[in-house]
Amino acid sequence: MKANYGYKDGSGDYFITIDTDKCNGCRECVSACPYGVMGVGPDENDPFSDDEVAFVTEQERKKIKYTCGPCKPMKNRPPLPCVAACGPGAISHSW
């Protein structure tokens, strides 16, 4: 499943996509993110699955543009910590 967390408002699109088929629940992203944006747990959108997968935490879903801001400097943007930490490449950001 491609789970798109985030939003689109008047100013633009801000989505973090988790490919739950690629995610193995290793939690590397959770440790890598300095702001607590990522979480891992049962897949709440697939009630019959027992696998744990990554998601964007409930309290951050409506403000990732702001919370992720410091990881996305306007100049010389380094790789995002969560994306870099994820071995199977399950995470992508839309902006």
Binding site: N4, Y7, F15, D46, R61, K62
Partner: peptide
Amino acid sequence: GKVTDFLMNDKCAA
């Protein structure tokens, strides 16, 4: 009926 892709926007009233 199993979800394969989704997005939900509940941040913006538009």
